[in-house]
Amino acid sequence: MEALTLGPAGTYSHRAAKAVADEVVFTDSKTAIVEAVASGEYERGVVPVENSTEGPVTESLDAFAEFDVAAVRELITPIRHALIAQGPEFDVVASHPQALAQCREYLDRNYPSATLESMTSTAAGVERAREDPGVAAIGHPQNADDELRVVAEDIQDQSSNATRFLVVAPASERSEAGSKTSFIVYPNVDYPGLLLELLEPFADRDINLTRVESRPSGERLGDYVFHIDVEAGLYEERTQAALSEIEAIADEGWVRRLGSYDSETVLD
């Protein structure tokens, strides 16, 4: 099976995707991953959706609202950042903006005069360091090799730093089995107490909400799409009952059930 994810090789997305597929193909766009799976071009896509330090990955959320796919698996990847360079002397640190942000305190404390350079991925930062001895990269320590050395390990500001990925499949593979469920609600209305009305059906049935995010719908200013994750499967009667109430509230808009799935942690 092939899986499409963010490249190039050596990114954290690549490490997550290797737990899903024998062959991993790369792109530079989260939207492109979801679109390619929705069209049937790829059987699986692996998309980052949330980081414990930096929060939601908004491009991924917007792609889920735009393209109809199924969420079939959740992967949690602990993030281990290392400072990698050809030698101890450098004046630029290059990496993905989220990696730079996740190591902000370390960099401010140890390299306050270094220039921070944003790259499309952590792997691209590693390649930049490989090409220029004046550049260090932030990436997984296993990206070090004969040309690059690990200057420092575990430089992330939060030791519990982790990224959550969703494995997406064509909509026809949507499942009701699993311990978690993701869905998207576009009410297409706005009035006081709307969000409370959307959440009460779950509270009334003792269903735990693990994530609620709002994203602009793109239709008009102040109009939102809600992304909701719950700790319950679609196969459960209580989940079906709660969603029935929500669909009634959003009868002028729509509700998309991404599907139910189980979660696992992927260790390097």
Rank of each mutant, 00 (worst) to 15 (best):
N208A: 07
S214H: 12
R205I: 01
N208H: 13
V212H: 09
Y191L: 06
D190C: 10
E200Q: 13
Y186A: 11
R211P: 00
L209A: 02
N208V: 12
D204W: 04
N208M: 06
D206Y: 08
Y191P: 01
V212Q: 04
R205F: 03
V189A: 11
L194V: 11
I207T: 07
E213P: 00
L195P: 01
P187D: 10
N208G: 03
A203M: 10
V185Q: 11
D190G: 14
V212W: 11
D204R: 14
I207W: 00
F202I: 00
E197P: 05
L199S: 04
T210R: 14
I207G: 06
L196S: 13
R205G: 10
I207L: 05
G193D: 11
V185A: 12
D204A: 15
E213L: 09
V212E: 06
V189K: 10
R205T: 01
Y191G: 02
P201N: 05
V212P: 05
R205N: 08
E213C: 10
L194Y: 05
N188T: 00
D204L: 15
G193C: 05
R215Q: 14
G193E: 08
T210A: 08
L198C: 07
L199R: 03
N208R: 12
F202M: 06
L195S: 00
R215F: 04
P201M: 06
E197Y: 05
R211D: 09
A203E: 08
R205D: 03
I207C: 04
R211W: 05
L195H: 01
E197R: 12
I207V: 15
I207E: 01
D204F: 09
R211F: 14
A203K: 14
N188Y: 14
G193K: 07
T210C: 05
E197I: 00
V189H: 05
N188V: 04
P192G: 06
P192M: 04
Y186E: 13
F202G: 03
V212I: 15
L194F: 06
E213N: 13
T210I: 10
Y191D: 02
R205K: 12
I207A: 03
P187Q: 06
E197L: 11
Y186T: 07
E197W: 03
Y186H: 15
G193Q: 09
E213K: 00
L198Y: 07
G193M: 07
R211Y: 13
Y186R: 07
A203R: 13
L194C: 13
G193V: 08
D206P: 01
E197D: 15
L196V: 10
R211T: 02
I207Y: 00
E213H: 09
D204E: 15
V185H: 09
T210D: 12
Y186F: 15
L199W: 04
L199P: 03
E213R: 00
P187I: 00
N208C: 02
L196K: 02
V212G: 00
V212L: 14
R215W: 01
L194T: 13
I207S: 05
Y186G: 03
L199E: 13
L196C: 01
V212N: 06
N208I: 04
